[in-house]
């Protein structure tokens, strides 16, 4: 895997990399989708490239939200309360 990851994708394939991103987002037209799928079936380098791109995006899409630091909610409500009291005066 690392061999392919570190390898420079040749010019022909490099032009396809933005199409991979659109493909992941379901933003490619049907005809282009078919062409890309054919290419992926024929080109192991691009297939590996696409699989790792997909895995990366899937993994960071699955990240949970960051928990608030301890006491942050309390401090937030205190700040809002202060803004309200300033607003009243």
């Amino acid at each position: 895997m690392s061999k392919i990851m570190n390898k420079n994708i040749d010019h022909h394939c490099k032009r396809m990399t933005s199409a991979f991103s659109d493909y992941l987002d379901n933003r490619l037209k049907k005809q282009l989708c078919q062409r890309l799928e054919v290419h992926l079936a024929e080109c192991p380098d691009c297939k590996m490239y696409f699989d790792t791109l997909k895995m990366t995006v899937t993994l960071y899409r699955s990240l949970e939200q960051e928990p608030l630091p301890e006491g942050a909610e309390k401090r937030l409500f205190a700040t809002i309360k202060l803004a309200r009291s300033k607003n009243r005066t």
């Binding site: 895997m1 690392s2 990851m5 990399t17 933005s18 991103s21 659109d22 490239y49 790792t52 791109l53 895995m55 990366t56 995006v57 993994l59 960071y60």
Partner: peptide, 21 residues
């Protein structure tokens, strides 16, 4: 926006590949 998205995804793919492997 799309161009930044593609470029950034590629950067992350390259750098996170080691973890995936």
């Amino acid at each position: 926006m799309k161009s930044k998205l593609h470029r950034s995804r590629e950067f992350l793919r390259k750098n996170l590949s080691v973890y995936l492997k």
